[in-house]
Simulated scan of single mutants.
Amino acid sequence: MRWVALTAVAPVAWGANYYVTHEFLPPDSPLYGAALRALPAGLVLLGLCRQRPRGAWWWRSAVLGLLNVSVFFVLVYAASQLLPTSIASTVMAVSPLAMMLIAWALVAERPGIAHLAGAAIGLGGVCLMLLTGTAGVSVPGVLASVAAMLVSSFGHILTKRWNAGTDVLASTAWQLTAGGLFLLLVAAAVEGPPPSLSTPALLAFGYVTLVATALAFAVWFIGLRYLPAGTVGLVGLLNPVTGVLLGTAVAGEVLTVQQLCGLALVLAGVVLGQPTRAGRRGGSRTPLQPAPDKSAAREFSTRNPLLGSGGTGAGAAPMACRDE
């Protein structure tokens, strides 16, 4: 439960990120917006871990940085600007189901019949929520959100597969730095000079960089190291829940009855698709990584200053075969 609670920080921060991006960041500079989110976060984590890539991690960092950072951040930025906060975050609710299917192919975590049924119900809920003719639902925004969900799901499971004893904080820093540098070059070529930022925008970028990126990605990748993909996907439900709550309570957005029913179907489908007891029943393979013991947790908190010395940090004992 400690690893679940730590992992939960990420989807809550990401759910709030939709509102912050939509309300405070410049809408016409998605490339610079993504670059200013990724690169400073990567440099902060590099300053904390002080490790450089070795061997295959030079090209792995580039690949994962492109998937998990460059492409994903631009798509999320665009979706956040084109869609209401509640809609953009709800589309991402399908990501746990996508992660299950991708994990089946890449890391042999096979979903059962209940998982597939949950995927069908979740997709039906998304269709009910978005294909009802409701005004204000942007088709490009929906496509951007769906693409972001698919890209991130694949990138996260690929990270899980590649992590072979690499420090989580270090691998996260390499991905963010590589993706941020690529975004900065493309932004300079496509969008020209960087946009001028007001004080609220600078404060918003501070949250997006430090909380929704540096901290959130570190704890998310830790969760993928020590928990099955299905369990992490269930924790990811806090993303759309946070987005919907902020969109309705703070941004004044209103959901129709059909959209609320669609959201309920999405949540029901994802809950149904969780392999909480599949490993005990033989329906799926056991996780690649056994739960860490207390000594590993102590080493984890000692080696990574990002989360202090509270006993649950971001780079615990080396893991067998995944990377994020």
Rank of each mutant, 00 (worst) to 15 (best):
R2P: 01
W3G: 08
L6D: 04
A8T: 04
A13K: 04
V20P: 01
A35D: 07
A35N: 08
R37H: 01
R37N: 03
A41R: 03
L46H: 02
W57S: 01
W59G: 03
A62K: 09
L64S: 01
S70F: 13
A79Q: 06
L82I: 10
T85N: 11
M92D: 09
M99I: 14
M99S: 09
L101H: 11
L116H: 08
G118L: 03
L123E: 11
G125R: 02
M129V: 14
A135I: 09
A135M: 07
G136R: 06
A144M: 13
A144T: 12
V151N: 08
I157P: 03
L158P: 00
R161N: 09
N163L: 13
N163R: 10
A164P: 12
G165A: 04
S171T: 12
Q175V: 12
A187L: 09
E191P: 09
P193G: 10
L203T: 06
A212Q: 05
A214P: 03
L215C: 10
F217A: 10
W220P: 11
L224I: 08
Y226K: 11
P240F: 01
L246K: 10
A249D: 11
V250F: 07
T256H: 04
Q259M: 06
V271D: 01
Q274F: 14
A278E: 03
G282R: 02
Q289D: 14
A297N: 01
R303Q: 14
G308D: 04
G310Q: 09
T312W: 15
A314H: 10
M319K: 14
D323Q: 15
